[in-house]
């Protein structure tokens, strides 16, 4: 009898499944990874959309202000002229203009219907102010307006801009938090699945140790399996999630919040990162679980 000579393993030997296939339960890990990634796509869409919304609102509203003038009819023209002259001499204002009657009517039309006799109503005069860069001193402007035109009121929208921007910002944080939680839950799920698989295969591990397998070899067998499973599951989950987002009705011009949920441009690349991230989470979680379990065995 001659002892066999050793040579480097061929691909067939290398791919040999030393850990027995785990049957239907393996699909649970794949399915869960897929479902979680699907949810993750929406959380991602939510945080990206709310980020855009927050930016848009801040941007659009920060640059404009409105001066509302309520005055007796005979004072109207005088005070309007006074306001315009104040604005003309205020630094930091890019442009300003008084809305004419047609525009005022158009603004009111949704509420009062067409054919409104605007001139017969004590409707305040509106003057639109667009802020320059750097902006104007709103406190100083208010004081000057109060002196020149007592009926004028400067509304720079901060009153309702801030809570909206804050809400959108919170929404974004919530989205990011959801992604983190989904990631943590996935790590926990994979750790549990890996521990179950390691426990089921304790005898296999004992045999492998007996014939001289190093921990890294044994861990590799499990890690590869769970990483590939998670990658496959979350790839399907991502595809389904992206299809779902794409199928949402298109955002209208005003960018309503619900219809604005989705990805734009390069944003579509973000969800493609999710399967890789999920696989990385699976890799680390399984590896940790495997080495922990292996240390319990001799």
């Amino acid at each position: 009898m001659r002892f066999p000579r050793a040579k480097p393993a061929s691909p067939a030997t290398r791919a040999l499944q030393v850990v027995p296939p785990s049957g239907p339960t393996a699909w649970l890990a794949t399915f869960t990874a897929g479902a979680m990634t699907f949810l993750c796509v929406f959380a991602l869409a939510l945080s990206l959309a709310s980020g855009r919304l927050a930016d848009r609102w801040s941007e659009a509203l920060a640059r404009t202000a409105t001066i509302r003038l309520s005055a007796p009819a005979e004072q109207m023209e005088i005070q309007t002229a006074a306001i315009l002259s104040v604005l003309a001499t205020t630094p930091g204002i890019a442009s300003y203009r008084a809305l004419d009657e047609a525009e005022t009517r158009a603004l009111l039309e949704p509420w009062f219907g067409p054919g409104l006799p605007v001139e017969a109503l004590p409707i305040p005069r509106l003057i639109e102010v667009v802020e320059g860069d750097p902006g104007y001193d709103s406190q100083g402007l208010r004081q000057r307006l109060a002196a020149e035109a007592p009926g004028a009121l400067l509304d720079d929208h901060t009153r309702w801009r801030r809570p909206l921007a804050e809400a959108a910002e919170r929404l974004r944080i919530l989205g990011v938090l959801s992604i983190a939680l989904i990631g943590a839950a996935m790590a926990a799920m994979i750790t549990l699945a890996a521990r179950a698989a390691l426990a089921t295969n304790a005898e296999v591990i004992r045999v492998l140790r007996l014939v001289g397998a190093r921990d890294s070899y044994i861990a590799r067998a499990f890690v590869r399996r769970f990483t590939l499973r998670t990658l496959a599951g979350s790839a399907v989950g991502t595809a389904a999630g992206m299809a779902g987002v794409a199928a949402l009705p298109a955002a209208d011009a005003a960018g309503g919040f619900l219809t604005g949920l989705g990805f734009t441009g390069a944003g579509w690349l973000w969800p493609l990162v999710l399967p890789l991230l999920a696989a990385l989470v699976a890799f680390l979680a399984t590896r940790r679980a495997a080495f922990q379990k292996l240390r319990e065995l001799t």
Binding site: R5, P8, A9, L208, Y217
Partner: peptide
């Protein structure tokens, strides 16, 4: 062949 397999080696099939 398992002792070979776990060290990423394999034996000559004839052996």
């Amino acid at each position: 062949a398992l002792p070979f397999t776990v060290s990423d080696r394999e034996s000559d099939p004839q052996d």
